[in-house]
Design a protein around this nucleic acid. Structure first.
Lengths: 203, 203
DNA sequence: TTTGATAATTGAACAGTGTTCAGTAATTTT
DNA sequence: AAAATTACTGAACACTGTTCAATTATCAAA
């Protein structure tokens, strides 16, 4: 009697439907504006039914967050094609920036929005989130082995590199600074990135 | 017949009371958790009365945001005591970082939270927000005049410097990355800042 | 096939949010 | 004292996330 297995499958399917609806609404309306009720309506269930598959709103977006990390890791795969360590580091910056530009909502969920992060404490799934950072540390170490970044702790330096990229990505995005108008944002971010690369080259 | 002036004064006073209540609640509970109703209760008015003095919730926090900018500008005053341009630039970074640490809620309101920023579009009061950035550009130019940062556009470079500081400040704060646990956050941010300073020194 | 148990689903309710507005109360002017 | 102006209230609206008793559907055993 494989009815139990089938039920299990059906449950997974419903859960996946909810997740799909949540994803679409999230990309269209953002985190705050995506309500449980709107998700429920999209999958044609009652609001209460959502809570049969997810503990709360956060845990829905936690899954989307994990998706984001996996997607970022996939994007990082192109780095394998770059053999020179420093070139690879630069390419990594490019990929990271492009990811933030292509999926601003994922980026917010992963690195800006406070709420859903709680959910991934003491969680092995966080490995997905760690990976990119570990790759960064690895690449930095490789750079050191070919003469870059001497007399520097690779972990600290990696964190600094990450922070810089994060700053370039988020400074103009949130709280439109007027200093940089919407139109020229991409441009100045690109320039800031190039500035950063120039700095790295001289080390 | 100074009744009109008195009424005006009374209105200002009530507005200031509301602002004070909002500020206290905001620092105690954060932006989201500070409700119009809780503000109203604190000043012993009905919720509707708030809207006699402020257009909406955003415009209340807009005023607090301006406060934050003014406070930051005040903190920047110590820079006048530093004569060497590069030392002044470093001190500016320190002040900015300390401000973010001392008043994290102000910082969020000013540079992270999306919502209240809308309110200060086409607003002369934004000058308060511009000031610090203009000081930064000025200091960078001074640094250039004594041999630092050659062959670099000062505005772009300033933006890059700002973005780096912003990144160092915000990366660990939002979405506790687990990569850096709560306890060691201050430490790694300090190290990242020092790393940045080292980079700048070599330019 | 009917019964009893189990699982799935609902929809109303709770306590909260920002915001509006008709109605009331206080104040000032005539 | 009456009229006009201003200040203020509090109920209501349309939302939010979340819970839970009641209902319905599904399935295993008799």
């Amino acid at each position: 009697m494989g009815t139990k297995e089938r039920k299990e499958r059906e449950r997974e399917q419903v859960k996946s439907q909810i997740l799909t609806a949540a994803r679409e609404l999230f990309f269209a309306l953002g985190y705050e504006a995506t309500s449980i009720r709107s998700i429920a309506e999209k999958v044609e269930y009652s609001p209460g039914a959502i809570y049969l598959h997810f503990k709360d709103k956060d845990s829905i977006f936690h899954e989307l967050q994990i998706e984001g990390f996996h997607l970022l890791n996939e994007k990082m795969a192109v780095l394998l094609a770059v053999s020179d360590p420093f070139e690879r580091l630069k390419a990594m910056g490019r990929v990271y920036m492009q990811f933030a530009k292509d999926y601003p909502d994922y980026y917010d969920l992963m690195f800006v929005i406070r709420a859903p992060m709680r959910a991934l404490e003491d969680d092995e799934e966080w490995q997905a989130g760690e990976t990119a950072y570990h790759i960064l540390i690895h690449v930095v170490k490789e750079c050191q082995s070919v003469g870059y970044f001497n007399n520097v702790d690779p972990e600290t330096f990696s964190y600094y590199v990450w922070a810089t990229m994060h700053g370039i990505i988020t400074l103009g995005k949130h709280g439109r600074n007027k200093v940089v108008c919407e139109a020229s944002r991409n441009f100045i971010e690109e320039l800031a990135f190039q500035e950063f690369v120039k700095m790295l080259e001289k080390k």
